[in-house]
Design a protein around this nucleic acid. Structure first.
Lengths: 222, 222, 222, 222
DNA sequence: CATGAATGAGACTTCATTCAT
DNA sequence: TATGAATGAAGTCTCATTCAT
């Protein structure tokens, strides 16, 4: 559930110092990671507030507490900042999701898991949610060239859950797993987007998750 | 179904003056509209191909066959081009949809109508689909200030269909009509987005519409 | 002799208005040429004073009395400014030189013509001289990629004069025309450079021309 | 002849420490000099390949196998690198040349000596030749402030040779020794430049030296 | 109405230089 | 001495917008 998440803000501040010391290879720049993370986190916040194109690199730098030039020690350019942000987070989601799914044999449970995870990981992270649902789509180029491959992996994973359910005789035939994957993703994305752009009340996404899961499962079951 | 559509490309060049003259408010200059339409159409094409921010106003002008400055006789600025594009199209959708829905009493038929219409109007208009699903999200500002209100109207309309279905005892209780509206919209949007970004095969959206409608209806029915 | 020159500063201000009107094709942007020339002239002045790399594009713009962006309507980038400057001038030199040489049959006269022309065209144009002898060599890239081809044409032309003189039995054999061409060009370039970097006294180059021509001719004659 | 040259690349790596230790002022740190030399040599190579302005200090550092900051322990700044390079080499040339000239009484021999030395020292050192003929002119500021004084010394030395020859009644009167010095230097520089920018074939410069010396001497002799 | 040359503000990015280690 | 991560000043270039024709 914490898959896609930044380190929890609470624990983060507590352990950030320790983390560098204990779970990083000591040869590497010991403080490089935190700085990269700091920049990414600042970028998320500013992008969400102002939009990607309206955000100046210098604003991200200021928010991260580094010099403008420092951004370019960690990211190729401004675009790379957005893409890296997306890739970092979706990588975490993919690996956790794969792991969680492996632990759940029933198709229903697996589908619920996907739904809860996609919504759960953004709950409480309005900024990240906004960046991913809104800002990431800023540029067709970014979408097509960079985000698309990772995104396709995620859709395939959902499609697999549907397909497995069909093979197991639990889900109805006659529904294309790939269309369904897109629809499921889109439904969750749509809910997240309006949540992020609106009041973003606590618990809103969890409640939505249950309802959407109920409807989709009833719709898919034989 | 032609709601959201451009005038048919064939008739357009021949009759554009006349056509727009009769179903539009007469206050505006007689030949201004076709030029406005030409610009809007060019914008759609270029925005879809390159993304809103990567598109220069001069490129839209060239694609529309007008001078750069002419754009500013019809639109306040570049943002206005995108917003106008969205509003023009969604206005047509809203009025047609309201009209179509009025003709269908059963909740199932009404929900199917929504789904078919949202997908149907973009079928064969890959450019427009891409602009609406991808480019419109370019700027949080645009989304929040301009698109959001119109968009909310659309979501309310869907929510109403769900809510009416519940009151009629056809759809299950326990599902928030607003959450459902967002999920339905998102599901269709997700399918459209991948369709537009991918191969965009003819008929792809219609087939998807039926499947999604089936799943959602089964999921919503008592 | 005016080959390589800007229009004479005196006549220029007198006739610039007229020139546009009478000797330009009227279809073309009537005032584009003067603006390009103005920029080129401003660039020469500023480059000579501060060096190419130390000169900001905005300084050239200010000196030319145009906006920064205007520079980019006439030149691809800052490098192009330097290269264009060189090419424009050398083109004029080449065509005038070819024409003058055709009118002189004797090898001695032809060599004197080359020498007087290379030095004469820069006499009184210290800025241009400095840009060509000093600034142009600022970048190996510029030299190798752009200036070199035109420059080679010029060297070939000198080599041809030497070679023709040898065939005519006037100049000694045993001297490579190409080596000699480079040496002649270099001798003149060296004199011009120190003249431009130093006091640049009026008449200095003409006097030098005669002396150098004398030495080289005596050295080359049988 | 080795005047202007780097230490021979072969012996250099083996004996660099010892060699520089004996013929240099002992005041400086014992191992600082080889590092200074390494940096200067790296700078020559990289400047020749990319041009002074296109070369980053970090590239020189990498080529020299030192850290960026180390450069600043030996040179005040990037400009100082170019100036030092020039001064180091020209100092060697000047002292060797003075010494060689002292050993030759006849004006003809002295002039041949100048020519052979200027070309000879660069033969086989294409990089250095390119830096001196092309890169050094990168900045008017560098030329005027730093290189010019040393350069003037060199020109004076050549002028002296001409002037002495005239006084001895060997060279013709009526030729300004200073103009001649600039022309001689320029002729050699021109040949070197095209050699360095072109194929730079072995022996090319020596052959050129003889031809140029022949022409100039015949031109200058009574 | 239409044009398109001109504008000029402002963003991204580079890179010489510094300094804590 | 040596390092190289960090800095931040500053320049090139773009492009939305204007306005004289």
């Amino acid at each position: 559930m914490a898959a896609f998440c930044y380190p929890d803000p609470v624990t983060e501040s507590r352990f950030s110092g320790a983390k560098v010391a204990d779970d990083e290879s000591p040869g590497k720049a010991a403080d490089a990671r935190p700085k990269r993370e700091r920049i990414l986190r600042a970028a998320t916040k500013v992008f969400a507030r102002k939009g990607f194109y309206a955000t100046k690199v210098s604003e991200v730098a200021k928010a991260a507490g580094v010099a403008d030039g420092t951004i370019y020690l960690y990211f190729k350019n401004k675009d790379d900042l957005l893409v890296s942000l997306f890739e970092d987070r979706i990588d975490r989601l993919l690996s956790t999701l794969a792991q969680e799914l492996a632990a759940r044999p029933s198709p229903e449970a697996r589908l619920r898991c996907v739904i809860e995870m996609q919504l759960g990981l953004l709950e409480g992270q309005r900024d990240l949610a906004e960046v991913i649902t809104v800002n990431l789509r800023q540029s067709t180029k970014l979408m097509k060239q960079y985000a698309a491959p990772k995104f396709a992996l995620y859709l395939d994973l959902i499609a697999q859950v549907v397909s497995d359910g069909q093979k197991a005789g639990v889900f109805r035939e006659g529904v294309s797993p790939h269309v369904m994957a897109r629809a499921i993703f889109g439904a969750l994305d749509g809910v997240t987007m309006t949540w992020a752009l609106g009041r973003a009340d606590a618990g809103g996404l969890s409640r939505a998750a249950t309802q959407i899961a109920d409807v989709l499962l009833r719709g898919l079951l034989r």
